[in-house]
């Protein structure tokens, strides 16, 4: 009871402070608000620069992708690191490495048969077998087509992760782990960020700042730094997708099997 009273007081104070600020907000949907156009009498805001100039500077029509992977690429790299850290934290918290019987389990217990080993699995299993390749192809499309349509590494990576989760849901976790083992996905997660960071590091060796993709035109042999930026963005999106896929599946595998990485569900 006491907690509820104090919570109510804290929440009301917070709400009041927030409302106090809202009174001075620009109108909802106002295209000339400071965030959209810059403060009055000041320089135009960064977002106008993105809308007007980013295609010229990066040759990427999807402005969200160009801002995400280039202008604020440093943020995005650490966003991927957040995912990686979460995967490691979950591993550290839940994973039980001292299982007494490391060999594959004997036949599933009676309760598990309905999900795991019996004929009822046929419908679910077949549907999943059909759906999974389609999901994966669409995921790859989303990763690769992030320059021109909504999508990119995070969205595609989540879909790829989901396809492996579907393997586990439609069949069992052991099947999914046979396709994407624990060693593999933890390494893939590091590898994804490594790909991202490598795209930042190579420009440093060419005498420019971290993540300055433009200088990579010497390596990609593109005409002009803009296309080099565009290609590099695809590269970092692939890295992001690898990490996100691995960690999404890692979260599922750990949570669903209570860190045992066998049996589960």
């Amino acid at each position: 009871m006491n907690a509820k009273v104090s919570a109510t007081i804290a929440v009301i104070i917070t709400g009041a402070v927030l409302l106090y600020g809202v009174a001075d907000f620009p109108d909802f949907g106002d295209p000339t608000s400071p965030a959209n156009a810059g403060v009055e009498g000041g320089a135009p805001s960064a977002s106008l620069h993105f809308i007007n100039e980013s295609y010229k500077e990066t040759k990427v029509p999807n402005l969200v992708t160009s801002v995400l992977a280039d202008y604020r690429g440093y943020d995005t790299m650490f966003e991927t690191v957040v995912i990686f850290a979460a995967g490691l934290a979950i591993f550290v918290i839940l994973r039980n490495l001292r299982s007494d019987d490391p060999l594959p389990e004997p036949l599933p217990a009676t309760e598990d048969r309905f999900i795991d080993g019996d004929h009822q699995r046929i419908i679910v299993g077949t549907t999943c077998r059909i759906a999974i390749p389609l999901v994966q192809i669409f995921a790859l499309y989303v990763v690769a087509h992030g320059h021109h349509s909504p999508g990119g590494g995070f969205q595609g990576g989540v879909m790829l992760g989901a396809s492996f989760i579907l393997v586990a849901l439609g069949g069992n976790l052991r099947d999914a782990l046979a396709r994407l083992g624990e060693d593999t996905f933890m390494r893939l997660a590091s590898l994804g960020i490594l790909i991202y960071a490598a795209f930042g590091l190579v420009p440093q060796f060419l005498g420019r700042n971290f993540l300055d993709y433009g200088v990579l035109e010497k390596i990609f042999l593109t005409d002009g730094p803009e296309m080099a930026r565009s290609h590099s963005m695809l590269g970092v999106e692939v890295g992001v997708a690898l990490t996100v896929m691995s960690i999404m599946f890692a979260i599922f595998a750990n949570l669903s099997s209570r860190g045992e990485m066998r049996g589960g569900l």
């Binding site: 320089a43 805001s45 960064a46 700042n209 993540l211 300055d212």
Partner: peptide, 13 residues
Amino acid sequence: FLGGWEEPLGIGI
């Protein structure tokens, strides 16, 4: 200036 985004101030990190 990360990514070499120096001008105008505020577009990069």
